[in-house]
C-alpha cells in the first residue's frame, strides 16, 4: 500500500488536511477577516498619524506616518498569530474532537506544521493587507524586502507556535485570551510600536530593553528603513531561538501528553 509506505516518513496528507481545514475557516469569513485590519489600520493612521504626527514630523529621519507602519503590522501580527494559533488547537480540545488528532498517525512536528502553518499564513496575509492599506496613507519604501518577508514569516510562525502552546495549556476561554490580551498586546504597545525607544527617558529605556518585543519591532523596522534601536542580528537570532524553543516545548507536550491525554 503506497500511502502506508509514505506515512513512515512523513504524513504529508495529514499536514495538508489540517492546513486546509484551518484555512477554510479563515476564508469562510474572508470579508470580515480582511475588513477588520483595513479598518483598524485606517483608524491608527487617523489617530496616531494625524493627531500625533501633526506635532512630531519625523523619527530618526523617517516621517512619523511611515515610521509607525512596521509597528502597526507587528501589533496585528503578534496578536493574530497568537489567537489563531491557540484557537486552532483549543477548540478541538473544548469540543472533544481532539480525540481524532490524538489517535491519528501524525507526529508532533506534522501537527504543528498544519496548525501553526495555517495560523502563520493567516497572519502573513493580514500583515500584507495592512501594508497595502498603509500605502494609501503614506509613502513606504522597503530597504530590505526579502528580510522583511522573511522576518514577517518567522515572527508569525513564532507567535503562532506560542499561541499553539497556550491553546494546549488553556483550560478555559479566559485563559485562552489571557496571554494575548494581557501580555502580548501591552508589551507590543510598550515595545516601541508607535515610538522609538530612544525617545524614552533613561530609566524607562533600560526597563524597556527587557521587553523582547522591542527587539522584534526594531528589527522589522530596520527591514523597512535601514535603522534600528537595537542590534538586528541579535533580534533575528533571538526570534529564531524562540521558535526552536517552542518546537522543543511542543515535542515535550506531545510526548508526555501534557493537558492533552490522561
Amino acid at each position: 500500500m503506497s500511502s502506508e509506505q509514505q506515512i513512515l516518513g512523513f504524513n504529508r496528507y495529514g499536514v495538508w488536511a489540517i492546513f486546509r481545514f484551518e484555512m477554510a475557516r479563515f476564508l469562510r469569513t474572508a470579508g470580515q477577516s480582511i475588513l477588520t485590519p483595513v479598518l483598524t489600520t485606517s483608524l491608527y493612521f487617523v489617530v496616531f498619524g494625524s493627531a500625533i504626527g501633526g506635532r512630531m514630523s519625523e523619527v530618526g529621519g523617517v516621517p512619523y506616518g511611515a515610521f509607525i507602519v512596521p509597528g502597526m503590522i507587528m501589533l496585528t501580527i503578534l496578536a493574530e498569530s497568537m489567537s489563531n494559533g491557540s484557537f486552532g488547537i483549543y477548540f478541538p480540545k473544548f469540543t472533544g474532537t481532539i480525540y481524532e488528532l490524538l489517535s491519528a498517525p501524525i507526529s508532533p512536528v506534522e501537527t504543528v506544521l498544519g496548525y501553526v502553518g495555517a495560523a502563520a499564513t493567516k497572519s502573513v496575509i493580514l500583515g500584507l493587507i495592512i501594508l497595502t492599506t498603509s500605502t494609501f496613507f503614506v509613502d513606504i519604501r522597503i530597504h530590505h524586502p526579502i528580510a522583511m518577508i522573511g522576518f514577517l514569516v518567522l515572527t508569525s510562525a513564532t507567535f503562532a507556535l506560542l499561541g499553539f502552546i497556550t491553546g494546549i495549556w488553556a483550560r478555559s476561554f479566559e485563559q485562552l485570551s489571557f496571554i494575548p490580551m494581557l501580555v502580548v498586546t501591552p508589551l507590543t504597545f510598550l515595545g516601541g510600536a508607535f515610538y522609538s525607544i530612544d525617545m524614552l527617558p533613561g530609566a524607562w529605556r533600560t526597563i524597556t530593553l527587557f521587553n523582547p518585543i522591542v527587539y522584534i519591532i526594531s528589527a522589522f523596522r530596520w527591514c523597512f528603513y535601514g535603522t534600528s534601536d537595537v542590534g538586528v542580528e541579535v533580534s533575528m537570532l533571538m526570534t529564531a531561538i524562540f521558535f526552536l524553543g517552542g518546537l522543543v516545548a511542543v515535542s515535550w507536550i506531545f510526548k508526555t501528553g501534557y493537558r492533552l491525554k490522561n
Binding site: 495529514g14 488536511a17 469540543t95
Partner: peptide, 21 residues
Amino acid sequence: ATDAFETVATSVRLSRGLFGR
C-alpha cells in the same frame, strides 16, 4: 464530539487526510 461549525463533507475529508490517505 463533532466539528459543529463545519460541513459533514469537510469534517469527513479531514479525517481521511489526518490518517495519511
